[in-house]
């Protein structure tokens, strides 16, 4: 039974615990599936990776990346409630790369359906007028369920949650759908951010709470992002690096670099770290530890930014 995205208060499990669990389960699944010839050959050879990087069209890359982690079944069980959190906070424009590519979101929805998920919701708390911002993703997902994609911008949709491990921020209000979900999948687009360096899966959790302003105003923003990450823990992170907004993020316009790739990992810190290392932000090569909230997340034990010590698998879809 996968842990709910909202962790109960208590000691933080180090990343190795979940890695062992996935290795155990993953080997069983990969073994079974590779016998059935379902997985691409590269992934079948040697157990599932910690971080998967797939290149190809958005749909193929997502499928390959998730497959290299052990397949969607490793994350979503039959009948479970899933919330997918993309970036859809700006007016939709694929080439501007400020929102997640709708194809990426749609493929994740399809995968969850294939795994037999009971209810899938695609949610965000947009900055601009909700109906406009979610349009691209909503259209892409409408074949599955016209009522799946929502931009929630009213306090009534959010419920108070205490953050026991918060160093700065000790309470917040989280979308009720997320609190009730069994599985949370983060699927940000890779983009720079003028305050936090980058906006990826850790930063993206800010889209699931009501009052973000207070993280700027009252608390240290980077520490507050990590505080939030102690209660909003996606089981799966799929980063859209098909087009990366490398300058002037998070809204752009800026320099968009096409990498045609997708990063997937169970550890959001590792996924974010991989994206930082892989993308030429402002034309430079930078290390994960240079992003304060990623570094703090690693130091506080929420995940691993030392990707050089993790199993990284590259596949071509």
């Amino acid at each position: 039974m996968s842990p709910s995205p909202i962790s109960p208060p208590g000691p933080v499990w180090p990343g190795s615990w979940s890695r062992r669990r996935f290795l155990a389960r993953g080997i069983a699944w990969v073994g079974a599936l590779s016998l059935g010839g379902v997985l691409p050959r590269q992934a079948a050879a040697g157990g599932p990776a910690d971080i998967a990087i797939a290149e190809g069209t958005p749909e193929a890359a997502v499928r390959a990346a998730v497959g290299a982690l052990g397949g969607i079944q490793a994350f979503v069980r039959r009948g479970q409630k899933v919330v997918i959190k993309p970036n859809m906070s700006f007016a939709p424009d694929v080439e501007r790369a400020s929102n997640t590519h709708p194809e990426v979101v749609r493929t994740l929805v399809a995968l969850c359906r294939e795994a037999g998920a009971g209810r899938v919701r695609v949610l965000d708390h947009p900055l601009r007028q909700a109906e406009l911002c979610i349009e691209g993703v909503k259209q892409a997902c409408s074949p599955f369920d016209k009522d799946m994609v929502h931009g929630l911008d009213k306090p009534g949709f959010f419920k108070p949650v205490s953050i026991a491990q918060g160093l700065q921020m000790r309470e917040t209000d989280v979308m009720q759908d997320v609190l009730e979900a069994d599985v949370l999948i983060a699927t940000p687009v890779a983009k720079s951010h003028g305050s936090t360096g980058v906006s990826l899966s850790l930063k993206g959790m800010m889209g699931l709470i009501w009052d973000r302003g207070i993280m700027h105003y009252k608390y240290d923003l980077n520490e507050a992002i990590v505080d939030l990450a102690t209660v909003l823990k996606p089981q799966l992170t799929v980063i859209d690096v098909t087009r990366a907004l490398t300058t002037n993020g998070p809204g752009g316009p800026g320099k968009v670099v096409r990498l045609d790739a997708v990063i997937a990992a169970a550890d959001p810190v590792a996924a974010d770290a991989q994206a930082v290392a892989m993308v030429p932000w402002y034309g430079q090569r930078l290390a994960p530890r240079q992003v304060p909230h990623i570094r703090r997340a690693h130091e506080r034990g929420l995940g691993r930014m030392d990707i050089e010590n993790l199993r990284v698998r590259r596949v071509t879809a």
Binding site: S195, T196, T246, Y282, Q284, L286, Q290, V291
Partner: peptide, 16 residues
């Protein structure tokens, strides 16, 4: 894209 000039250095949000 502003070229990283001396003193300009890192993109906004990043630390050394």
């Amino acid at each position: 894209v502003p070229p990283p000039a001396a003193g300009q250095g890192l993109p906004p949000g990043f630390t050394p």
